[in-house]
Design a binder for these strands. Structure first.
Lengths: 245, 245
DNA sequence: GATTGTCGTATTGTCGACAATACGACGAAC
DNA sequence: GTTCGTCGTATTGTCGACAATACGACAATC
């Protein structure tokens, strides 16, 4: 039985209508493909990533794949030891604490700026996004919506440096929470839904242009959300350790 | 006339006394070498970085060099456009503002933690460092000492995530301030020394274990320091623009 | 004289092959 | 039975060569 493809092969560059100005290099396509694979759970946390099979699956040379992987290592989604290969990262609870702490600092400023600078069109967009998020039932898609919603807020803040740092900081977090959900589904553990009330209040604060409220709501939102995830990660790791012995 | 070597060729792996456990790969050596070259001003901001000559100078293949450069691009020290090569970054004043703002957020927390967690041995180390910094006359070396001192503080904070972000964030800043100094020396502009009073008070606050003072002193230190640099960058860019026309 | 088309070259993007290393299996010594 | 040495294989690290692209120079056209 042919195993299901984990990754989509890199598509030949689509013939843009007017010869696209910014040609995307193969490396960038491989990078995006790999990143998506991790951030959508097709490559799950802790999984070994071998170069030759992956290069074949993607239809590119190992050199290119290595450059893309290099980038993901630097971004914190992969970790590699020399001659011992690369794996998708697996965060320890203490690391999650650190990341969330840094995230609160940076995103606190981002939502403050967003509340100060938001336009009417963006207000509508955020509200629409939030309604969509409320309607969504599938927990996996809820997580992805959540991620994209936050990213949009960072964009609205207009602070490119903080935006970049936040993307880098939260990607491993997102991958890990994804792993939690899929493992919990597989093992038939209760998969409690994300708390969404704080989410709504955060959006409202940003749209109403009240920076202090926005920052406060963000802190509440993140701590509430991630103490739960953190506990689950700890339990998950404990279970894994137990299985090993 | 043979031009002076910008980079030291990558040395063959020195035969460690007991066969070092962590073998440094060629890529890592190339990465460090290149990074040092930028952060010590041997490769100056805005300079084009060509792969073939550089690979020959370093005595490695282009593939390896590309992987190392890739990493520096992600770190923000190089910027590259497809088929148009890579250059050392050149920050615009607005970017400096953004970086310093993010830095204050993160380093504010770092010095707070450092003040809470510092040990006696580390207190002495910081004080010694600070005295050394006071004695130093060469402005270039002052900058390097300053950078290392801050890095040591981040380490003492024990927050690995914030430390990593800060290194990434400040490297381009440091490279740019270096460029300023060397250009100013060359063009015989006045090169005003860094203000050091705030520096001393910051160290004292950390050593005395007063987190609030430490955070406040840090903010003073950074804003004082970087508004100066920012102004100089703006003037420098203005001069360059004028030369072009 | 300015604009546009063509081409050559310098440089980067991509690839396949070879060298070096880690890790597990297997067998020998105690 | 356990420990240690040896070796084979799977996998990564490194390299040199070929293909694709950008950019400037030069010629042709209006």
């Amino acid at each position: 039985m042919p195993k299901p493809a984990l990754l989509l092969p890199v598509p030949a560059s689509p013939p843009g209508r007017v010869q696209r100005v910014t040609k995307e290099s193969t490396r960038d396509k491989v990078y995006s493909s790999l990143r998506n694979a991790i951030l959508s759970g097709r490559l799950h946390c802790g999984e070994r990533v071998k170069e030759i099979p992956l290069a074949e699956e993607l239809g590119v040379s190992r050199a290119i794949l290595r450059e893309a992987m290099q980038q993901l290592v630097h971004e914190g989604l992969l970790e590699s030891n020399s001659y011992r290969g690369a794996r998708v990262i697996e965060l320890r609870p203490e690391q999650i604490d650190e990341i969330v702490e840094a995230r609160i600092l940076l995103e606190g400023r981002a939502v403050r700026l967003a509340a100060e600078r938001i336009h009417n069109a963006q207000r509508e967009e955020l509200n629409a996004f939030e309604k969509q998020l409320q309607r969504e039932k599938d927990p996996l898609r809820v997580g992805q919506f959540d991620f994209r919603l936050h990213q949009r807020i960072w964009q609205i803040s207009g602070h490119a440096t903080i935006e970049k740092l936040l993307i880098q900081l939260t990607s491993p977090l997102f991958a890990m929470s994804l792993l939690m959900r899929s493992k919990e589904n597989r093992d038939h553990h209760a998969s409690s839904p994300l708390p969404r009330g704080t989410h709504k209040r955060l959006i409202e604060a940003i749209c109403q242009g009240t920076p202090n409220d926005a920052t406060r709501e963000l802190e509440a939102h993140l701590t509430e959300n991630w103490t739960a995830i953190r506990r689950r990660v700890a339990e998950f790791i404990a279970r894994e350790e137990a299985e090993k012995l």
